[in-house]
């Protein structure tokens, strides 16, 4: 029997597999028992109503997807009053993804979520490239990323706080260190990378709003590298995300330093992908004689090579 449990700060998850924000909702309970997941992660909640971006919002590539959905939603009040009762039907820990336009708004929203029963952790989406003009976001630089994190930390002292980083930055290790120092309990690495597709017949971007976030299998090597860099830069847990579709993909992210993984775009192609990943992880550990999945974390990092050599 393999022990699949993983610890993210003070939170213990039954297994290290959870959905990526934006690709998941209670609708998936039509397909399988969501309590089999390590955690549930909501779409990003915003302080106010958002209509979302113009269509088309999705554009397929050879092995991935560009999206510019624009975080449509009814706002935080509606989320707490209407969506939370539905989420509380599930036993798996609920991680609420939060996106806000200002540092003060991040803090206000974090305080309200911390006071909401059933919220196990906040995942701060400081990196979504669709929100800010020209794709700019808090997560592009260490200072604004740290400012948002510190404000949430102060506003919601006891609440596990995960910060989702962006690949759209020159030095992700510096951003990871900055949010760690600002009080984050974990970093989620990484959000989608900015991309573009053009319809050559019309000479217009294929997405209604121009650029979009790229995800899916083609993005995996980039995300894996970002996890590897962050895992060596911080002491807090890293949660790996980006192109994970199989158990082997998940093992790679754990070996690169992740303590847990998120599965996103793969669920569009196979709604049961997360279950397959959990089962494959367990089989891999059993085959390798690994008693605890947590032993995989960082197994491929240079410090593990050095320890092995000593």
């Amino acid at each position: 029997m393999v022990d699949l449990a993983t610890r993210i700060g003070t939170l213990t998850l039954a297994n290290p597999v959870m959905p990526a924000s934006g690709t998941f909702g209670p609708e998936l309970a039509q397909v399988f028992d969501l309590d089999r997941l390590g955690a549930l992660v909501t779409k990003s909640v915003t302080p106010e109503f958002r209509a979302g971006n113009p269509l088309p919002r999705l554009c397929e590539t050879e092995a991935g997807v560009l999206n510019s959905i624009g975080i449509p939603g009814k706002g935080l009040d509606h989320f707490i009053a209407q969506a939370m009762p539905e989420w509380r039907r599930f036993r798996a820990p609920l991680v609420v993804s939060l996106s806000a336009p200002t540092v003060a708004s991040f803090a206000d929203c974090a305080a309200r979520l911390a006071a909401t029963p059933g919220v196990a952790a906040i995942e701060a989406n400081i990196s979504c490239p669709n929100l800010e003009e020209d794709g700019r976001a808090f997560a592009m630089h260490p200072e604004p990323a740290a400012a948002a994190t510190a404000a949430m930390r102060r506003a919601a002292p006891g609440m596990p706080l995960w910060v989702k980083l962006s690949p759209n930055t020159g030095d992700i290790a510096a951003v990871a260190r900055a949010v760690e120092e600002a009080g984050a309990d974990a970093v989620v690495v990484a959000n989608t990378i900015l991309g573009l597709a053009i319809d050559v017949e019309t000479a217009r971007p294929k997405l209604g709003s121009g650029m979009g976030g790229f995800s899916g299998p083609a993005f995996k090597p980039v995300a894996l590298r970002l996890v590897w860099q962050c895992a060596q830069a911080v002491r807090i847990p890293v949660i790996g995300v980006g192109g994970i579709a199989t158990g082997e993909d998940a093992v790679e992210f754990l070996m690169a330093g992740a303590s847990a993984v998120q599965v996103g775009t793969a669920s569009f192609v196979s709604p049961t992908a997360m279950l397959s990943v959990i089962e494959a992880l367990e089989k891999f550990c059993a085959r390798k004689g690994i008693a605890r999945v947590a032993e995989l974390t960082g197994a491929a990092l240079p410090r593990a090579w050095r320890e092995a050599a000593e």
């Binding site: 934006g22 909702g25 998936l28 039509q30 779409k43 088309p56 919002r57 999705l58 959905i69 669920s267």
Partner: peptide
């Protein structure tokens, strides 16, 4: 996604 999760 076809299930209502992606809002595409």
């Amino acid at each position: 996604c076809g299930l209502g999760m992606c809002f595409c």
